[in-house]
Every structure is written in C-alpha cells, then in structure tokens.
Nucleic acid binder design. Sequence first.
DNA 1: CTGAAAGCGCTAACAT
DNA 2: ATGTTAGCGCTTTCAG
Lengths: 333, 333
Amino acid sequence: MKRVTIRDVAALAGVSSTTVSRTLNDSPAISEATKEKVRAACEALNYVPDIAARGLSSHTTNMIGVIVPDVSNPYFSALCASIEECAAENSYQVLLTNTLHNPDLEMEAIDWMLSQQVDGMIISAYSPQSQERDTALLGDLPCVYHGSNHGSSCSYVEVDNDLGAFEASQYLCRLGHRQIVFLGGRTGSRTLEQRLAGYRRSMLMNGLTPYEFVAPESVQKLRSWCYEQAEELFRGGCIPDAVIAYSDAIAMQVLAAAEKHGLRAPEDFSIVGFDDISISMLPQIHLTSVSQQKSRTGRMAVERLVAQIKDGTGQTADIVQPELMIRSSCRKK
Amino acid sequence: MKRVTIRDVAALAGVSSTTVSRTLNDSPAISEATKEKVRAACEALNYVPDIAARGLSSHTTNMIGVIVPDVSNPYFSALCASIEECAAENSYQVLLTNTLHNPDLEMEAIDWMLSQQVDGMIISAYSPQSQERDTALLGDLPCVYHGSNHGSSCSYVEVDNDLGAFEASQYLCRLGHRQIVFLGGRTGSRTLEQRLAGYRRSMLMNGLTPYEFVAPESVQKLRSWCYEQAEELFRGGCIPDAVIAYSDAIAMQVLAAAEKHGLRAPEDFSIVGFDDISISMLPQIHLTSVSQQKSRTGRMAVERLVAQIKDGTGQTADIVQPELMIRSSCRKK
DNA sequence: CTGAAAGCGCTAACAT
DNA sequence: ATGTTAGCGCTTTCAG
C-alpha cells in the first residue's frame, strides 16, 4: 500500500495541492463547495497528512516535549496525565521521555525533542544545576520547569515545599507528638532543602529537636536506603512519635520496615507523606499526605508554555500552595 | 537563534552536505579524518539533526507507536516501561498515546501515529472488534497487539488468562474455600471471558457453584460499579469464603468495601487479584495476584514488531504462561 | 477564490 | 572517498 499524498487527493478532487492544503487548514479563502469535494477525496483515499513534512515547511509542529524523571512513578504519571489533558485542550500533542534520574539522559532527551522540532518543553529537572546546561541546548525555545529543581533564569511552576513541610510538622505537633523525625530525600535536591527548612522552622517554633535522616548524594537506590534507615531505627527499639517522609513512596518504605517489627501506623507511631499519590488513598493505607496539587500545577505549566509559544510571553514564576490531606495515619499522642 | 542545518555544518567543515550526512550515519565510505572534521563542526555549531526531515527522505523514522487504554493505570505504566526499555535497546523511540477506553480515541491515536510516520505499532486494544477497524487504517504497517482483545488476522502477544484464573481458583479450593465469587470486568471483553472460563472450569472440577458479578457493557465507571457490588455483598452479611477479582485495581475496591464493614483479608475472607501491579506488594496490602508477566510480554511484543519491520516476518502468535504470586491475602479455611 | 513554483532539511542514487 | 542532483510531502509567497 503506497502512501497517499496530498497530490493524490488533489488529482482525485480535480484541484491543486495548494487547495487541498488550504482546505485541511480550513483557510477561509476556499469556497465551501471546493472544500466539500476535497474532503470527500480525502475520505475516499483514507488520506493522512504527513505531520513531519508539514512541520518541515511550516516550522511548527504543535508538539510539546515533556521530560520527567520516571513516568512509572505514580506522582509523575498523574502529573503527565494532567499535562497531556491540558495540552490536548490547546491542541498540542505531547512527546514524553523519562530521564530515569540520569542527568545525561536528560540531555539526550532534550536533544531528541529538539530533533523532533517540538514547539516548546516542560521539564521536571533532575537538579537545579541541570537547568544551566539545558539552556545551552535549548537556546530560545520556549520552556517551563516544573518543580523546584530549576535554575534562576527560567520560567517555572512549583509548589511551596517549605510551607507544606511546615504545615505537616505543625499538624503533628498539635497532635501532641514531640519526637518527630524527617526521613528521606537525597542531598543536593532543592526540593529536599525546602522541605527540611519548613520542618526545622516548625521544630524550632515548638521547642523540639529535629531528627533528620537524609541520603548522601552518592546513594543509588534511594528507596532501599530509606528502608534500611527505618529498619535500623525500629530495630534499635527507639520508635519515634511520628515521621515525616520525604514522599509517599518513602512513607511506604517506612511502613514496610515498621511492619517487619510488628509496628503499625497510627497505633504505634504517626506518619505523613508528601505528594498525595493515588496509593495513599488505598484501603488499609490511608496515608495522610501533603498534596502537591499535581493536576493544577501540570495544567498551569502547559498554560504558561502555550502563552510563551503563542504570544512570546516572558519569564513567569508560579508558586502554588500545598494542601495537607488528612487521612488516618496519624493520631493524638 | 536560527536553526543550524546540515549545510551550515558542511560549510564550516569545508565539505558537502552529503559528507556530513554520511558521517552522521557513520558510513564506512568516509575517511576518519573527514569524519573528525565534521564532528568538530557539529559540536561547534551545536547541531541537532531534524528527524522529521530525515524521515521524509529516508522513509523510516525509527519510531514505534504504542497505544494503551490508560498509562496512569499502574499495569499499563509498567507495561510501557518495559516496551520503552526494549525499544531503546533496538534503537527505536516510542510514541505513546492513551485511548482512555474510548474506541474513537483509539482511531484518532492511530491516525496521529500514522501521520508521524511510525515504523510500526503496538496496540493494547479496547475490544476484539476494534482490530478490524484498525486494519483499514493501518494497511500493511507492521503491528502487534498486546493482550487478548485482538482480532483473528494479526500478530499478538497475550497471556493465558484462562489458565491464570483456573490456577487462582484451584489455589483457593486447595485452601478449603467453597464459596468463591468472581467479581469485576465488563461484558464484551475477551480477557474477561477467558478468565471466567478458567474460573468456571475450576468450580466445576471441584463441584462448586460459580458466583459471578460482571458489569454490563453500558457501565461507565467500572471501579465504582464494582465497589457497589462488593458493598452490597458485605452489607447483606453474606461474606464469601473468597473472592477472585478481575484485576488488582478491582481487588482494592473490594477491600475498601470490606473495610467499611469492618472486614479484612485474610482474616474474614480470602482474596486474589490479577495483574500483579506494584500496589499488591505494598506493606499492609500483600495481595496475592496472578501475574501477567508484563515485562516479559512487553519486550516480546517489541521483539516481534522489530522482526516484522526489519525482516518482514509474517504473523506471530505468542501466549505466555501466567504466574500466581502468593502473598498473604488468602488463608486456609 | 485558486494555482504555480520555490523551498523546508535531509538522504539516495548517480556520478566522479 | 567525496560531490551533484533530485526529490520526500507539505506550506507559502506571489500571481492571477
């Protein structure tokens, strides 16, 4: 089956290829009668326009590139869903790539998207440093960063991590807990620093000592590192009143370690996570979590990007408020 | 910043654009010295080849299209991850689209991929019927279906659903359960029919009565429908010995309904799911589940597809064995 | 309102 | 070992 081109359609409809092109782009300059003829011919031949060729001559592809660390992580898959939805509403297609937390793959991904001629990109960066290197590749391509790991001279949408951690801590303090440990995250992540800051502020305000368990930058498998830490904690028999986990995924590691020692939340200790991923609402889990509003921030990133592409808007910075989703993993001390 | 083209590189390196092209494709006809010069020029100009243009003239894009119902469903996101991984090993890029269980979107997705000139496609179809309509669009484009909802004249990779359900039922019987209900799935799905068949066969073999709760085709929100069913079941006070859920996601609905009535697995009833998604291994969940071997079947689909693209292999049919992953959601009666 | 011609960035014969 | 030429399928001036 040979490829059907615009010329085949033109021949069948008895018009020029220009007219076909105009019909497809719904140019007002073509008479309705002609448009009908052309549309019929398209239908008859099962014509599908070649987007690549179109992009080649029109210098616009209606595609946006989205780069995230890992789509199989529920937080990112939910984020991507909202991005895709909003992109579709603006008639953009999404090109998605994972960096698997590998800075080199992040560069490769950008290269690939550039070679696909995307009209703009949304990047959930690996670390604040990578933005500078990205810019060299990106040139003046419209781009907005999602999350806190962005550089200083770019558009971004992020959540107030400091506030989120602060509120989580305050909530635990109000419940009467005094030994509150913060567990998880990797040194070097800006997101982590912000969350730690909020946590410390709350501890200070309540006259409590912060206990922090943060992975060194070199750690490869962050989750198992966290499991080990929690396991050691519980094995030592020193069960904290409460733990604030860097993310819901980490909270699961803590819960797993606890379970190994016959401990449960909220009976034996309270726990709150971050991200409010779908797992936290599961039966038998009911994890209290700080929501990052992924659906709102995802749409917002798309809207900012589309504005940049279409109207050449300058840099934007949005910081959205987190929300503590209270379920039943914490209780009064 | 103007786009850097192959001609700019050629000019800087003092060669023809053909030579640049050959260097990029690592043609053996070019001397190492020239290649070096060209590579240096690329580097200096930060040149990124335009893949669309390349596809236009070479009639091959090294992209494969993947269509699944919903990537935010953990089963599909894990499947996609394995597809993407295997595709990368064969130097193919993946173009991913969700159909959100909408047959029309499935057609649109195919159209989009065709217009992107993908070299082949992997489709996890909505229903067995859709394959026939797909073929009209697809023409002779290499394509392999993943899962049981494929037509009769196409390549596919599926899991033996009948066997999976049979083994799950047998396992429950061996534990001494007699009232075993099957819950979930939508009428019209071939996958469901196969699972029901295996379940019935086992019931028959053990002289037990099958109890089936299957959603009519018209049901929109399958999950809440299942929740309602389970809720009604438990509210009636007739707690079955065990339930086989159509999927792990459905099992969660059952567990949630049970929880509402103060019931737990495995204390009050046993439960097994299907898919073995990441959720089932969570602490406090530990759901026994029939694994669909998503990573194996995903890679297999890619391999079959690549063979079709490169060697023009004919139709293939692979049926892989499921595996019962025993955790602790079931116990002896 | 419609068409002819040029060209987007690249590769693939066909030279040399 | 390298260059020339001619498109790939589409949009976009520029002319009618």
